[in-house]
Design a protein around this nucleic acid. Sequence first.
DNA 1: CCGGATCCGTTTCGATACTG
DNA 2: CAGTATCGAAACGGATCCGG
Lengths: 146, 146
Amino acid sequence: MPAETKSCRSTCPIANALEIVGDKWTLVILRDLMFRNLHEYKEFLESPEGIATNILSARLKFLTEDGIISRIPHPTNGTKKLYYLTERGKTLMPLLIEMTIWGSDQISGAETPPHVITAMRNNKEEFANQTLESLAEWEAENLRTL
Amino acid sequence: MPAETKSCRSTCPIANALEIVGDKWTLVILRDLMFRNLHEYKEFLESPEGIATNILSARLKFLTEDGIISRIPHPTNGTKKLYYLTERGKTLMPLLIEMTIWGSDQISGAETPPHVITAMRNNKEEFANQTLESLAEWEAENLRTL
DNA sequence: CCGGATCCGTTTCGATACTG
DNA sequence: CAGTATCGAAACGGATCCGG
């Protein structure tokens, strides 16, 4: 009995997400953009995971070419750039939220606040909306020129 | 306003998921286990992504040691083994579902059935339950000996 | 045959030094 | 400060070999 018939509708399009989701550093950058309000090259570098400069450059380039993020010159500081999520990039949020939830309750008893997580788990929608809102705030401040 | 206070509660535990989610081949195997009802070494090898034997071995080993999957000797064929998701492994399903959804509607207009996806998107719970059910069916047939 | 370990040529990654 | 060059380390893919 061919297994393909009963499950995996449409050849399991997970493959299309592998380039993004299957890469550790890409995920770290996306997390920083979504949940930590980071927008600068230097800020990404200082993330606890310790990404290297060439890796960061490569991933930012890939994400930009792929339409997940975009960038502008820093409004006041000419030497800096600001990176931010495109609308397409924001569609990855449910995925990142699931990652956060799963990562939270796997290290049970560790440094993870107990019921904050269950709250997040029960209010994914609200959590997503709050996060989107804070992204919108940042955009309102920094993307006026567009 | 320090960005850390308003978002990223609890130091963003995404990091805990990176070993699993940040690896392409691990995700491919998990997809095969969850959505394609594959349970044998050889079946994984034949997946369209084309994983190499040594890579497959390494990932299966890691996933086993990490408690995501488990394995038993094939009930009728002594030389084969059967791999299957543990309860812990099944907790990754929401994440894989989000990956599937995201992968589906990014390749817009491609080989993806149109409204099947939106149905899946609107019925994540149901889709998850259906999938869990089909996993349970398989277990009922193959894990009797436990 | 099947799972899987080992070896090897090639590619990719990543830490650091360096440049504009 | 953003990004590149370099170079050793690791991962990958493929083939082969081994044990049951």
